[in-house]
Design a protein around this nucleic acid. Sequence first.
DNA 1: TATTTGTTTCGTAATTAGACGAAATACAAA
DNA 2: TTTGTATTTCGTCTAATTACGAAACAAATA
Lengths: 102, 102
Amino acid sequence: MEIKEKVYTDKQERVAKYSKALGHPVRVFIMDFLVKNADKCCYSGDMAEELPIARSTLSQHLKELKEAGLIQGEINPPYIKYCINKTGWSEAKELLVTFFNR
Amino acid sequence: MEIKEKVYTDKQERVAKYSKALGHPVRVFIMDFLVKNADKCCYSGDMAEELPIARSTLSQHLKELKEAGLIQGEINPPYIKYCINKTGWSEAKELLVTFFNR
DNA sequence: TATTTGTTTCGTAATTAGACGAAATACAAA
DNA sequence: TTTGTATTTCGTCTAATTACGAAACAAATA
């Protein structure tokens, strides 16, 4: 088990991860939408109505945001309520703001 | 000439553009490096020494950051001095900070 | 003029992302 | 039990990203 030398700091990798997740206008739109409606949580269909993409494509974008830890979905079939993942969201905020303020 | 309905706001598109540019650890490393050495500007070779990637690959990442408007290169053959593009950098900062603070 | 030097561009290959429609899923209601 | 509904997963396609080494570049120097 060799110890690999670390090139990028943990912070750099997390900044990259969150940035990548936000690197598409659909995903920025989703985050905006969820922040704006933070009180009520949202269904995939609510967003689908405002987006010019197939529902399956939206679903993929939601999955990516979920995997990055920025949102979470609460299953409530046949609906799925989406909302901001507060932990990930505030970590991303903290990291990015620190990244820019130096 | 039909007028296409706009789905994403200009801000959303710019947030996505800058985020995408920062969506790779090498590029986050480069920005960190340039901010840290903002006084002296930097050569590609300075960064290449600290990165485990081919110089041509680094060059590609530099190009992406340049195209996103986050850095600029001043040619000074055979060197190229890189530094932060203050305009783009502060726009990105403004956009991202606003994006997270709402 | 030929060489050296730091960097980029080119050509190529492998992987990942983004998009769609069709099919699957999981529960509610009829 | 069948039907309906909202959403996801699957299969597939195309395009973009990431990576490399070789070749090209542009100016300084021998």
